[in-house]
Amino acid sequence: MYKIYIVEDDDKIKNELGIFLSKNGYEIEKIGTFNNVLENIINSNSDLVLLDINLPRYDGYYICKELRKVSDIPIIIVTSRNSEIDELMSMNIGADDFITKPYSVQILLARIEAIFKRVNKINNNSIINFNGIKFDLSKSIIEFEKETIELSKNETKILHYLLKNKGVIVSREEIMVYLWDSEMFVDDNTLTVNINRLRKKLSDIGKKDIIETKRGQGYIII
């Protein structure tokens, strides 16, 4: 499990962000006081830092710069300043990404995932086992009783999303929003095609009817 360190002076944002990220499978540590930000971050042994710019004492830019001198921990700068200059500055002092408030949390999640993917080529959570099927996310492969088949990028995303919500009905719109967040702007027809192909591939390896259709509601994997 990856650990994320949140540096943010607004208590509400800090707590809600903590709740949201823990819900999505991350371990969280939040900053308490701003006396020794640098030390606290380093001692926390985190895998990623979410860093606000407007902070008491030293601002986020300073902390980012100092942190870079001693550690190459991924840093995402989160700020309400949204000018080109702020973004350039963040990148110049060694931040890995820059996101402006108010952000869509889905996009924040996507950015975090992208960084982890980039940093660690071998992903521990990349294999999901469900209903006897082995689903390798990093290789986009499903496997059942020696039968393997490769999935397209969209099919992988769709299957992953259905599995994230295993046992819950997922609407077509929800799946589309999820795909769009990864900048894959599929329309209604494409989604139908993708789902049909995914189903066909599942039945090809001998697992028919894994994805159930709920009329007028969406899809579900039980």
Binding site: K12, I13, E16, F20, S80, K101, P102, V105
Partner: peptide, 18 residues
Amino acid sequence: WVHEIKTPISSSKLIVEN
């Protein structure tokens, strides 16, 4: 002011999400 007001909007959006 614009930057200030973005903080409560951000936290409201997070509360909604949760």
